[in-house]
Amino acid sequence: MNKQQLLNTVEQTSLKDETPWFEIGDTVDVHTKILEGNKERIQVFSGVVIARSGSGTREMFTVRRIVAGQGVERKFPLHSPRIGKIEVKRSGVVRRAKLYFLRDRVGKAVRLKERRTKAPAANKKTNSA
């Protein structure tokens, strides 16, 4: 095996078997597990997916929402065991991969036109390594 294949086999163990399918511009609910003392609690962060970056175990996605008039962005590691469900609430029509232009918009301009298409099933882990 060459070096890249070896790295892939190592990463396979940390990848999720199934990652939920969502696209840039989708409004999602991200369920994160949070440890408070000894108790585990689930916190939901909902907003628009404005970017996806990285590959393999390092794949991240950025969710943006407006809280009390203030823009808040959170970046989640897609394969982290602490990220539970990712529910797609609404899909938006977008024409680019990074929606950083939303940062400059306020009020009604933030809205995205809704896209009505059926969502495909979840992404299965590919055993390419």
Partner: peptide, 8 residues
């Protein structure tokens, strides 16, 4: 050395 990556 093969390389660096990230695991959980």
């Amino acid at each position: 050395k093969v390389g660096m990556t990230q695991i959980y």
